[in-house]
Structures are given as C-alpha cells and as structure tokens.
C-alpha cells in the first residue's frame, strides 16, 4: 500500500510538471530536433512572451494528429520535407492562413496556393566531388552521374531517404518516369559501395578515398566546414568541391522545410505569430547562419558562410510537385535497388 501511495505521488508529480494547458503559449509538433529549432523559439519567446512547447518525432506525428482530431493540443506542424508537409494537407489537417506578412516574405512557388503550408527554408541537393581526383567541370548536371566513366566512383545514402526520393521526383518531373528510372539504374550501377550512412558520411568517404563523387545537401557541407567542435569534419569538407547542378538548364534541385497551422489549433493567433516570426529577416538569418540553409525570404542577403560557396540558380518546379511524385520515385527506388 505504501508503495502504491508512493507511485501515485510520482505520477502526480509528472502530471504537474508537464501540464501544457497554460494561457500564453503555442504547441508545436516538430519533425526537426529541438536542438536545431530551439534557438528560434527562444528568440520568439523573448520578443513576444509566448511560450513554445515542442514535441519532436521523425515518424508518426501525422498519425498522432489524425487520431487526436479535434482534441489535439497541437497548434503548429513543422516538417523538414515537402512530401511530409503535403501529407498533412492531403489529410485535411491544416487550415489556410490569410497573412500579408507570410505572402510578402515567401515567394509564391514556396507556399501553397491555398495558403495551407509555407516553406521556411530551402535546402539544395548538390554534387560533391573530390578536389584532387575529379577535375572541376567534369560534372555539371545531375544527369552526368550515370556516365559509365564514373563506374565504382559514386557514394550516396540510401535511395529511400526523403532527400534522395525528392531528388528523383524532380528528375521524374523533368524527364518522365522511364527516363528517371534509367537514370536511377545508371546511378546504382556506378555506386562504389552499398548506399549507407547520412550525407556527412559520403563526404567522409570521399576524404577516405572510398569514392570520388557523392550526392549531398549543402547544409551538411556547411556543418562540416564550420564545425568548431569536431575539427576532423573540416578535413572532410576540405577534400571536396561542391557543384550546383544544371545551372545552364532547369537549375539545382531544392527541397524545403516548412510548416502549417493545425486545423483544430486552440492558440491560432500565437501559432500564426510564430509562423510569421520564422519568415522575418531576424529568424531567416538564423536559418542560414546556424543551420546553413537558404532563407526563403528574398529580401535577405545570404550569410557570409553561404556566400563562401557561391550562389546558384534553383529549379523553380513548384515543390508540391515533388510531394506528388514521391511515391512514384519510391517505386523506382525499390525496382532499381538504390
């Protein structure tokens, strides 16, 4: 009985410490880790006094929100990939926002035509090459990767990762499904090793001489190059050159991180305020200086860090298209075994 009493006390303790139904706050379901997004929220709380509560998970937030329905405590959803964001739209979980601030701060191809989702930052998927073993200019387009002369020279992470799936979706949009599948098949034939690791691991592999060419996102390059804690990663970044692809045709493939207002939000005004805050120059500058992502707000100049590897022309394909083609891309990935 004593034990039972003790345990009940502990429960009550937990319950009290995680009470989220206070007055001035906003509840966020985030696919992005708190460590990367907390600095933004801290700034927001400082300037508005609104407290931000976060729940982070990489899988299943959609299902959680669906099942919670009208009872959900969530006000805002933040994702790191357009396909995921689009799933929330498809399941009718997001509510349109009429905000002149969001409209001014975000170019139209980076937000929903019905104002249900908004991109907050851009990430470019680029090619990294060894700066000693591959001549600059030898590769210019993403399509060049399937040239048989690169056999056994390319490293990537698994095809079914969001970023590769989205890249393949952009190729489907550009060339059609058959051509895109040929490309994927050619890429797999040129791989130096079984797809594994994350983007950083591919740069490391180039550094180690396991391969000469890799596909990666620019912000990983930034995180390695400017890594103050783990200086070893600087060596990885120093042994590669990065190439923005397709600069003479459709432009380099981009994906976005973004967010939307939950349909059943109980703190609508706070949630909209947070979303708007994230598109303002102050927060947008954080995206580029902290996470090395590209700001969506066109009025903002690139940070010194981003400028260090140059500007680029981006593929203007509406990002919704990427979400739409993702399942098709996944099937190709299954077929070619990427």
């Amino acid at each position: 009985m004593k034990k039972f009493f003790l345990i009940s006390l502990l429960y009550i303790n937990i319950i009290i410490s995680f009470d989220v139904y206070a007055i001035n706050e906003v509840n966020v379901y985030s696919y992005r880790q708190p460590i990367l997004i907390d600095p933004f929220f801290d700034q927001f709380t400082k300037s508005t006094g609104i407290k931000v509560n976060v729940l982070h998970a990489k899988k299943g937030l959609l299902e959680r929100l669906l099942s919670e329905g009208a009872n959900t405590p969530a006000d805002l959803v933040l994702t790191v990939d357009i396909a995921r964001l689009n799933q929330f739209v498809k399941n009718d979980l997001l509510m349109p926002i009429e905000s002149s601030i969001l409209k001014t701060n975000i170019p139209s191809h980076l937000r929903d035509s019905k104002n249900r989702w908004f991109a907050l930052s851009k990430r470019a998927r680029i090619i990294a090459i060894s700066n000693t073993r591959i001549k600059p200019g030898a590769i210019n387009r993403i399509e060049d990767l399937v040239d048989p002369k690169w056999k056994g020279k390319i490293c990537t992470r698994v095809g079914s990762h969001d970023y590769n799936r989205s890249l393949l979706a952009s190729l489907i949009a550009a060339h059609g499904e058959t051509k895109a599948e040929e490309w994927a098949k050619g890429l797999v034939a040129n791989l130096a090793r079984k797809p594994e690791g994350n983007d950083r691991a591919q740069a490391k592999a180039i550094h180690e001489g396991v391969c000469d060419i890799a596909i990666m996102n620019t912000y990983y390059y930034g995180k390695m190059k400017f890594n103050k804690k783990n200086t070893e990663q600087k060596f990885w970044a120093d042994s590669i050159n990065i190439i923005f692809t397709n600069q003479n045709d459709r432009g380099n493939h981009i994906n976005v991180a973004g967010g939307g207002l939950v349909k059943y939000s109980k703190n609508k005004e706070n949630a909209i305020a947070l979303l708007e805050f994230l598109t303002q120059p102050k927060a947008q500058a954080l995206y580029s200086s902290m996470n090395y992502e590209y700001p969506v707000n066109p009025t903002l100049p690139l940070s010194e860090e981003l400028k260090s590897w140059g500007s680029f022309k981006e593929d203007k394909l509406p990002v919704e298209k990427l979400a739409e083609l993702a399942p098709v891309a996944q099937k190709i990935i299954d077929r070619v075994g990427w």
Partner: peptide, 12 residues
C-alpha cells in the same frame, strides 16, 4: 526509444 518519441507529452 520509438514509442516514447511519438507518444510522449510536450517538452518531455
């Protein structure tokens, strides 16, 4: 890990 991640409350 995985169940705690998805089913936990805010800020937990």
């Amino acid at each position: 890990l995985p169940m705690t991640l998805l089913l936990r409350p805010f800020n937990f």
